[in-house]
Design a protein around this nucleic acid. Structure first.
Lengths: 245, 245
DNA sequence: CGCTACATTTGATCCGGGTCAAGGTTTGTC
DNA sequence: GACAAACCTTGACCCGGATCAAATGTAGCG
């Protein structure tokens, strides 16, 4: 359920099978816990465009994204829609204590999830305080990321919104030193739905950022950026955390 | 930290001293837990307009709002600001496992908090899985409410935003049958900062809703509404949960 | 009460991004 | 490789809400 965070998150590049990640340095799972998770896990895949869970529908599993990209969204009665979260590999889906999803969950690309049936997963939470506490930390991280997106939706210009989105994606998928490159996991329409814009505005802002040399577009779905600082300057960066009283 | 939720929340009208509420039917605290909470609690008050915690500053306590109203906000470097949460009586402040606040916390009116020092509160969480699990449920509720606000910020018109805000307030403070009445805990400026609007637009929309007979304004800070259904119709209500597949 | 400071409302104007309408590109299929 | 169906870009125009500017409350306070 983790939304794109501007800051590198502790949950990025984690284990895609274990919801308590990262597995590589998994201080949160002991062997018994991992074995218990392995026993109840089950892989499922969805095709791009398919709905995984409808808005308001029962959610009878928890899951970790293994490959692909899914979106969380909410809608108004007249069809207006807002994507409220992106799910990328290692992100978690699930609401311990809740039987239904308040959001639609849709496959933006082909998606594979590692799912855990509700009952045994919640039983595991009861038995493993460390897993429960890790889940709380993840939820709080997600809350912070969601509120950061509120600032974007409420106060940023179209150009800043697009720059922020690209920067978040590049930061999340960046490997090694620049120039950075990433494939957009969303169509223009989905990007617009995520940023509170229209598809035309997203397209115009991408073109404008390219013409201004801030980013490169390599085909429709690939973005490059040689200078993340420059992109950050376009994103209306938030107050630095270092501004302590 | 609970944001206004459109739906009556399980955390509304709870105990203002105990972060694991509601106290009256407190299935979550046993006597030992309440005694432990009582032992570490400490009341503090702030005047309207004072900053309780700066953005990015250390947050060395958890707390429950006893009286008054506080805001959570994030800012951009150039001063643009977005309120990302309202704190009303019984709402909780705190980030177990995190040493600093990503948001500014400010007193919108005179505020009294029931605070718990960080270390003993976290120790209590370790010892009481029920409190920890309750905290997780509260965080997930808050995440839902925050995402609902994202839909408002990204997709609703100015009139719908103001109607949604008033409806949430009236729902939260409503007592008995109508006509409903509530005091606005925020100034026009703060409402604008919460809704992603300007102060002038908020004022115009309030005037317009009053002229159309949807609400009444009794002085600057008191709102009345005889027909919440009507107000709901103005708020661009979300898809009903009953729309299950 | 009258004065000051501030909050709110109202009016006039402007502009960023939405809407509508083509036109161009990419992808998939046979 | 031709065709269709999406998807994306670009242009022209418009409108909701921002901005700028007064005017009008309203709340302290001597």
């Amino acid at each position: 359920m983790k939304l794109q965070s501007i800051r590198p998150s502790t949950t990025v590049n984690g284990c895609t099978d274990c919801p308590i990640r990262p597995r590589a340095v998994c201080a949160h799972c002991n062997d018994a816990e991992l074995v218990a998770l392995d026993r109840i896990k089950h892989y499922k895949t969805w095709k791009a465009g398919e709905t995984i869970v409808h808005e308001g529908a029962p959610l009878d599993f928890a899951a970790s994204v293994v490959t692909g990209c899914a979106t969380l969204s909410r809608s108004l009665e007249d069809g207006r829609r807002q994507i409220v979260g992106l799910l990328l590999p290692s992100d978690f889906i699930g609401r311990p204590g809740r039987a239904r999803s308040e959001h639609a969950i849709e496959a933006a690309s082909d998606v594979t999830l590692c799912t855990f049936r509700r009952a045994p997963f919640e039983a595991l939470l009861q038995e493993s305080p460390r897993i429960a506490s890790r889940l709380l930390a993840m939820s709080l991280d997600e809350l912070d990321a969601t509120r950061e997106w509120m600032l974007l939706l409420g106060r940023k210009t179209a150009r800043e919104k697009v720059a922020t989105f690209l920067l978040a994606l590049l930061r999340r998928t960046a490997t090694g030193p620049g120039p950075y490159r990433t494939d957009l996991p969303l169509s223009r329409e989905e990007i617009a739905t995520f940023l509170g814009l229209t598809i035309e505005t997203v397209s115009r802002q991408l073109t404008s950022l390219r013409k201004d040399g801030v980013i490169g577009l390599d085909g429709l779905r690939t973005v490059t950026c040689a200078d993340l600082q420059r992109l950050g300057a376009e994103s209306g960066a938030e107050v630095a955390e270092a501004l302590l009283p």
